[in-house]
Nucleic acid binder design. Sequence first.
RNA 1: GCCGGUGUGGUGAAAUGGCAGACACGACAGACUCAAAAUCUGUUAUACGCAAGUAUGUGGGGGUUCAAGUCCCUCCACCGGCACCA
Length: 830
Amino acid sequence: MQVRKQFPFASFEPVWQRHWLENSTFRAANPGEPGSEKPKYYALDMFPYPSGAGLHVGHPEGYTATDIVCRYKRMKGFNVLHPMGWDAFGLPAEQYAVQTGTHPRITTETNIANFRRQIQALGFSYDWSREINTTDPAYYKWTQWIFIQLYKKGLAYVSHAPVWYCPALGTVLANEEVLPTPEGPRSERGNHPVERRPLRQWMLKITAYAERLLNDLDQLDWPESLKEMQRNWIGRSEGAEVKFMVDSSDDVITVFTTRPDTLFGATYMVLSPEHPLVGKLTTPEQQAAVQKYKAEVANKSDLERTDLAKEKSGVFTGAYAINPVNEAKIPIWIADYVLMGYGTGAIMAVPAHDERDHEFASIYLLPIIEVVRPLIGHPEYVEGSETASAAAFTGPGIAVNSDLLNGLPTDEAKARMISWLEETGLGARRIQYKLRDWLFSRQRYWGEPFPVIWNGDQHEVLSESDLPLTLPELDDYKPSPEGLAPLAKAKEWLAVSEGRTRETNTMPQWAGSSWYYLRYCDPQNSHQLIDPAIEKYWMGEKGVDLYIGGAEHAVLHLLYARFWHKVLFDLGIVSTPEPFHKLVNQGIILGEDNRKMSKAWGNVVNPDDVIAEFGADSLRLFEMFMGPLEQMKPWSTSGTEGVYRFLGRVWRLIMEEDQEGHWHFAPAKVTDAAPSDDLQRSVHAAIQKVTHDIEKLQFNTAISALMILVNDLTKETVRPRAAIETLILLLAPFAPHMAEELWHQLGHPKTLAYEPWPVAEARYLVKSEVEIVFQVNGKVRGHVSVAPGSTKETVEPLAKALPAFAEWTAGKSIKKVIFVPDKLINFVVG
RNA sequence: GCCGGUGUGGUGAAAUGGCAGACACGACAGACUCAAAAUCUGUUAUACGCAAGUAUGUGGGGGUUCAAGUCCCUCCACCGGCACCA
């Protein structure tokens, strides 16, 4: 069925897309090139993983937002960097290769071609000469180069931490790919049993940057919620480490505590089951019980271990420790509520003032000693209370039963105890982070190979001149049964020389995306990651000026990229400590049924279909008109029709259709006469509103301002050219194809991409009269029209002359008159 | 449990403490048409009323103020994140 279109978008949209490409309209000038004398503006989209499914309508939301800003900034005289590329390493292409034998490179190339076609069909103003692809050896050469720098700075190291391994699938699984079942942990895919295996892994020491990653958040223009998520993830806490001697032994157990003031209340200790001292401490009588418990814990997934609902469990080791402050002999237990990965993997348990310790002590009947008394007036304060209550008191209070600390408030008691520990050498002030080092290796094929050579247990990195180290060709991409990465099969590639072999792991997908924004600045540089002068120009001062992407990357990607950036900053390669000055998360677009878009619900909207029916401009416009950018909102087909009709009205302002159905410019609809005062006010009000709203990324209200202007213009039978041209320029960032086409129809030979942005002039915005609200006791009872800027003395008599005034104030006296110039006059009566 | 966010017409949503519902969608009515589509015009928070109008109304309750969707306290619901981090 051929539905008649409101305007011939299908014929002019591709024409302009080709025009922009062929004329390199959006090429950004690097330093030294003409155009680079302008101030720079760098707007970045989170580059996509090119999946086989293609684009969905969620992708263009953020892309459209940045595109509007970029087109606007160009018209404001900025040299704009707006690039696009592909985060193309990743699992789906590799799994497809395992199944079909198709090289992931082939799959990736096909998918990229499709993504590029879809993105170009939306008319985004990307500088395609800067397109990058993380799987391109010319790109990952520099990812490997960064790894070498990390290695040389001692920020990359090898660990043998246990990871989940599935023998049936022949692969290592991520934590979230393992599910707890009644039969034990199973793989999410296939429900096969999985086990913990210690495998050789590369780690990056992101923890060395914890403090800076935390502190520098303050200077960023990011959503507060996102900064808070990163702060929580880094998880800084202040406290002390304390040394406990093991009774009748030379062994020392060091613990971390945030409450050194409660040391006198420590009645037992708990080690994580994986703690290295457990085997040595355990007495022969307890050996069997401890071994059994450790075995149970070893096969629990993290999910099970951290399930708060379950009752705490643990086993006594038979050994005792000496509390350094009072020489008390306290039992040492192991329990899985103490995690090896945090602090020292051991705690002093203070059941009176820690909920977890209290719960554990209640189950195993361990002593509870109160050492902090709530302040008088505190809800938990009990008059004359000497015994520990039924629940732990975790708040601040006054130290009791604590010798040198007695009577001190919690803050002072902490400080006092730390000084004492430092004087006696039994402990020290310590800052602890939740943040763990970054597990940086994967047992995959489709990733960056490590530029690392092994010689027995010794490792070294390749020389920089040997980069890139490219991936070898393989016959099949399955991991080996022993849990080795697929690269272990590339025997020739693997062997460097006698006894020296290559690393078989590859880097995770996060690697390529941790620095891609830098490469866009200087994408073809073969001898440097980025030229210093170019870096200074594009990344100087604030780095990326605007970064828009999904909130799902709130922590990992954005933390990893910030970490690498700081390392590069320390190396003098970049000139700012932070990569992304302003960051905005676009909201998720839901299906028309208000559910998350998914194949399972059958509510996925494909941009190709929307473009075929309404055109790219309509899609762009609707994505922005739906609501605030940051907000989650449902798709609506009728809403799309609404903005499509709006564009049709714009088109018909100056175009008309002939008998054959062809559209032509209609000179009779346009006049060179000056706009009326009313129209002039509409035009300048629109300029003001659209400009303001684009700056604040409030595109929905900017579009409604354009609609109001178009409604005003529609009412005129003949439209002043000046007004029409201003409208077209204001519309250009949102609906660039139509704007270019109409601009062209009006006789302009050149693209409008670099036309100066219209300026709102105050003299056109002043009204000849304003309507003042007349209120009695805060309720609207009428209106008075006066000249703008009228004083209270002018307005008050006018208001009093209103019939409504007498009606509503009859029999009452005026107590007060509130006057807000040009807004309202309010009579308070009683 | 903790942290963050959001609650406004039938729907998506607007609103520097100053006329709540801009702009759209949908619905209804009218114009054009043989008819329909498209387009154009008008109406459209709720209740009462023929109407002018009056009252009520921004998740619930309370407060500050001449004036509260907006500020404060409290409760509820939903969404997102974290979750034995000592």
